[in-house]
């Protein structure tokens, strides 16, 4: 905007930022902040696995020390070296676990933070392991050991970053909190997985196909709702009634398919699935065109139908 030229900050040459002076500090601090920031672009993703391995490898001389102590008949020395190595490995393991939890968190649009900040705890464990190695293995005195431990812990935090600490996702105007979205998504996922498990037991291939289409479409709908959860309250009802209905019907059919053969029940179940598939397609279409889901009527219709047929009583 050209009208704001009067508010421009004073000119600072690039060289001042690069080579120090008061103006260099903000840039350096921003770099540090970025290094610690949550890894939203996946830069750390692949690397944290390799790096935790490197850490364990770097601690392997402790294993040789344990063997050396064993050879010279020093049982305490051996136990110390082994314990220290285990301590390092435990820290690396915690960081790895924390990294995996962070990946799962990043993959979702709405997520609560991991219950324990494992990366941070892992970094502290690494620091403590380093300090103890200095104290009991290297024998360099308390102050140096603690300093070295603090340096290691700090370097580890810088390398691997903090764990996600806040719930992710925005609170929408309609008062839907990220937690509500997350719960609804998890519940719906569980139901879809239940349908898939029950469908695996169904012998008839065309029925399995229909169910596969329904579950795939449900996932599309979930993804859509996750992107724009403003209508979650009603969408949740939709997910619950439809998916519960599909789950119940599929389970019942799978259980009694062999008793009834190609009877009336097969036809009923198939037509129910066809209807469901059509409805799911419609809902998805509506979500795509950003129509509010006109659920209530359809829910009633389907609920009534599920009750009437109860396919399957």
């Amino acid at each position: 905007m050209s009208g704001e030229s009067g508010d421009k900050p004073p000119y600072v040459p690039n060289s001042a930022q690069r080579y120090g002076g008061a103006d260099a500090k903000p840039a350096a601090r921003a770099g540090l902040r970025n290094a610690l920031r949550l890894d939203t672009r996946g830069q750390r993703r692949v690397r944290f696995r390799k790096r935790t391995w490197f850490l364990v490898v770097a601690a392997t001389p402790l294993l040789f020390a344990a063997v050396g102590a064993l050879v010279s008949g020093n049982a305490i020395g051996m136990a110390t070296s082994l314990g220290l190595f285990a301590f390092f490995a435990f820290g690396a393991y915690l960081i790895r676990q924390g990294g995996e939890a962070e990946e799962a968190y990043l993959d979702r649009t709405y997520a609560s933070p991991p219950a324990t900040p494992r990366k941070l705890i892992g970094s502290l464990v690494l620091g403590a392991a380093t300090a103890m190695t200095g104290l009991f293995g290297w024998d360099i005195g308390v102050i140096q050991s603690v300093g070295m431990g603090a340096l290691a812990a700090g370097a580890s935090v810088l390398t691997f970053g903090f764990d996600p600490l806040r719930a992710k996702g925005e609170i929408s105007l309609s008062g839907v909190t990220p937690r509500m979205v997350e719960e609804a998504m998890t519940e719906a996922q569980e139901r879809i997985e239940g349908i898939e498990r029950a469908a695996a037991d169904i012998v008839d291939a065309p029925l399995r196909d229909r169910l596969a289409k329904i579950t795939a479409r449900s996932r599309d709908i979930l993804a859509r709702i996750e992107q724009d959860p403003s209508d979650l309250r009603r969408a949740r009802k939709f997910l619950k009634v439809y998916l519960d209905g599909a789950l119940e019907a599929t389970r019942k059919y799978a259980r009694s398919q062999h008793d009834l053969g190609d009877s009336d029940m097969y036809l009923k179940f198939r037509s129910l699935l066809d209807d469901m598939q059509a409805t799911f397609d419609q809902q998805h279409e509506k979500l795509l065109t950003n129509d509010r889901i006109d659920l209530d009527v359809e829910i009633d219709v389907l609920a009534e139908r599920l009750n009437r047929e109860t396919v399957l009583q």
Partner: peptide, 30 residues
């Protein structure tokens, strides 16, 4: 400073400390 560079440097420092401390422990025992 590039955050990636900071992370890499921090990692090198970390591995260096762990390795040196472990080696020193080995040397003490030896």
């Amino acid at each position: 400073m590039n955050p990636r560079l900071i992370r890499t440097l921090a990692f090198v420092v970390l591995v260096g400390i762990v390795f040196v401390a472990s080696c020193a422990t080995f040397a003490q025992v030896g």
